[in-house]
C-alpha cells in the first residue's frame, strides 16, 4: 500500500508541475488547432460529410500524430530524471526511504497522465465535430488510445536516455536526433532501400524493419484498427499488415524495454 502512495505522490507532482507550467494547455491547444484544421479540410471543403471524408481525416490525423506526438513525448520526458539531477533533487530523492525504481515508475506514470491530458485536449474538438456530423465515437477513441500510446513509447525512450545521460544539454540534442531518426530518416531509408532494390525486398524484411520503428508500428496499428477495408485497399496495404497481436506486442515491448533499462541504471547510480 505504501508503495502506491509513493508512486502516486510522484505521478501527481509531475502532473501538477506540468499543469502549472502551462505545458498541457499550450501544447494541447496547439495540437487542437492542427487537428481542427485537418478535420475542417476533411469535412468542410470536400462537400458533403460522409464515411470517406472521415476515413481520410482520420488518416491525416494519424500522420499528424506521427510527426508531432513522438516529439511531444521526447520533449516532455528528456529531462524527467536529468532535470531532478541538475536541480539537486535526484540525490535527495534517492536518499529517501523508498526504492529508486518507484521514482522512475512514478515519473513515467505522471508523464503518461500529462501526455494523455494533452492529447485529450488536442483531439476532443475534432472528435466532437466528427461525432456531431454523425460519425461514431469508436474510431476516435481508438485514435486517442494509439496516439497516447505512441507518445508513451517516446516517453519511455526519453526517460531511458534521461537516466543514462543525466545531462540536459546533451539530452535535448539526443531527443531531436531520435525524432529525426524515427520520424524522418527511417521512412527515407526504407524508401531508399525499396528504390535501390527496385522493390525486390522480401516482405518479411520490410515487416521486420517496421518492428524497429515505433512510429511505423503506430501507423500500421492505427490503420489496422481504425481504417475500413476500402481505405486499407486504397492505401495498398491489403494483406500486408502484420497480425494485430504482433503489432501490440511489439508496441508493448517498445514501451517496457526502455523503462526496464532505465530501472536497471537508476538502481546503479553512484555504484
Amino acid at each position: 500500500m505504501s508503495k502506491f502512495t509513493i508512486l502516486f505522490a510522484i505521478a501527481r507532482k509531475e502532473f501538477v508541475d506540468h499543469l502549472r507550467n502551462g505545458w498541457i494547455i499550450a501544447v494541447g491547444l496547439a495540437f487542437a488547432i492542427f487537428s481542427l484544421l485537418i478535420t475542417f479540410v476533411g469535412f468542410g471543403f470536400t462537400g458533403s460529410v460522409g464515411i470517406g471524408q472521415e476515413q481520410s481525416t482520420l488518416f491525416s490525423l494519424i500522420n499528424l500524430v506521427i510527426y508531432l506526438v513522438p516529439l511531444l513525448g521526447l520533449l516532455l520526458s528528456y529531462d524527467g530524471i536529468a532535470g531532478e539531477h541538475e536541480r539537486g533533487t535526484l540525490d535527495l530523492l534517492r536518499s529517501y526511504p523508498f526504492n529508486s525504481l518507484l521514482l522512475l515508475y512514478g515519473k513515467w506514470l505522471g508523464l503518461f497522465m500529462v501526455l494523455a491530458s494533452t492529447l485529450i485536449v488536442g483531439l476532443t474538438a475534432p472528435a466532437i465535430i466528427s461525432i456531431v456530423s454523425g460519425h461514431t465515437l469508436q474510431a476516435w477513441t481508438v485514435l486517442l488510445v494509439t496516439s497516447v500510446w505512441v507518445g508513451i513509447v517516446f516517453n519511455s525512450i526519453a526517460l531511458m536516455f534521461s537516466v543514462l545521460i543525466l545531462e540536459r544539454s546533451r539530452l535535448i540534442a539526443i531527443a531531436i536526433g531520435i525524432w529525426l531518426l524515427f520520424v524522418v530518416l527511417f521512412d527515407l531509408g526504407v524508401i531508399g532501400l525499396l528504390v535501390s532494390t527496385e522493390g525486390n525486398v522480401p516482405m518479411d524484411l520490410v515487416n521486420l524493419l517496421f518492428y524497429l520503428n515505433p512510429t511505423a508500428l503506430y501507423r500500421l496499428l492505427s490503420i489496422d484498427l481504425i481504417m475500413d477495408q476500402a481505405m486499407i485497399q486504397q492505401l495498398g496495404l491489403a494483406g500486408q499488415i502484420p497480425p494485430t497481436v504482433a503489432l501490440i506486442a511489439a508496441f508493448a515491448a517498445w514501451t517496457v524495454v526502455p523503462v526496464v533499462i532505465a530501472g536497471w541504471r537508476i538502481r546503479r547510480l553512484g555504484k
Binding site: V16, D17, N21, R87, G88, D91, S95
Partner: peptide
C-alpha cells in the same frame, strides 16, 4: 534527514 548542498526544488509548486 538530508539537506544537499544545492537544491532548487520545484519552482511551480
Amino acid at each position: 534527514g538530508y539537506l544537499p548542498e544545492t537544491t532548487a526544488f520545484y519552482p511551480n509548486l
